[in-house]
Design a protein around this nucleic acid. Structure first.
Lengths: 168, 168
DNA sequence: ATTAATTTTCAGAAAATTTTGAAAATATAA
DNA sequence: TTATATTTTCAAAATTTTCTGAAAATTAAT
């Protein structure tokens, strides 16, 4: 396996992992491509490398930017827009966790909250059991939420710390 | 919102969350239904409650059993098979994490391992950068893997401890 | 052994998601 | 302003995933 083949393999695999992580295949592949590209790439280069259409490329690049793991890079004297991925894997992972927490965990919390407002005789055994399950889930989700928030907070501090050191 | 409505709401929501967690909607809904059912249910009852076909029910029940969060319950004098969900949310979460770790994290680890065997001049700057990225990912995945394994192990011990106390 | 009940399988249908490609919108240069 | 390059949008097409339902297989009773 030479370098080009290894890169190809990497992009393919990242696409497969992406799918099982609820991220669409192409989005993950573009991310992989940018992650191992020595330079920022423009839309045409991405389309060429992955053999995808312009619309597809555009849409998924935008989504990667929304997730905060890819950014636009402008080159002086070139009208095309270039794109570069955040290369620090830890930062990438933190951003993804943050995004997924927001999209997946937070809704669970508010839904469970809302369901607990059920207007039913609290003494009824069936009602009790149901509310108990909902409460358990809520507790668990809160713990997970706190743990993640803590991790993200810690990382932020670590980052701030490092940054401050650089400028002091 | 009365009890029946609340239950309906719960099942619907669980289905939505499931999708974003890479679990199919019906599978998640069956799980939700069993989670709040006072008694084990049979296939017909599940089909009726969720308005789904027999094939669909059968397939997703089997998958829930594979994940280890639902089990068959046999009732004496009844030829039908009944199904019950694990009610301890913590256990459910642990099982799901274990399963996802196996299906998603472990493959990342082995693929990165394999890619690092690339046959390319290690002094070349491009090769170096590529291998560095792959190594970073591998390190991160290993950390995540260890953290999860630790959590699962801790839980196992906690469980064993609790169980032992009960019987001693 | 025969019959009846129940579960499993799986090809095709339906639904959901992703992708294309060309037209419209936007931005830059001449 | 006009022309040209580039990006964005979005309806329709392609693909992937999920679901149905009836036939086949299995299990248990008579």
């Amino acid at each position: 396996m030479n370098l080009a083949e290894a890169k190809q393999q990497f992009i393919q695999s990242w696409g497969v992992f992406g799918s099982s992580w609820g991220i669409n295949r192409t989005m993950a592949q573009i991310h992989a491509l940018l992650l191992i590209a020595p330079e920022a790439l423009n839309a045409d280069e991405i389309m060429e490398a992955l053999q995808i259409s312009r619309g597809n490329a555009n849409m998924n690049i935008r989504e990667l930017i929304n997730w905060g793991i890819v950014e636009k890079v402008l080159k002086p004297g070139d009208r095309k827009e270039y794109f570069a991925a955040e290369k620090d894997i830890w930062k990438v992972a933190m951003r993804i966790m943050k995004e997924r927490k927001k999209r997946e965990l937070d809704p669970v919390l508010s839904t469970m909250e809302q369901i607990r407002e059920v207007d039913a005789p609290k003494k009824d055994a069936e009602t009790k059991a149901f509310l108990d399950t909902v409460t358990q889930i809520q507790k668990f989700a809160k713990q997970a939420d706190n743990a993640l928030a803590g991790l993200l907070k810690a990382d932020e501090h670590w980052f701030t710390g490092t940054l401050l050191k650089l400028f002091k």
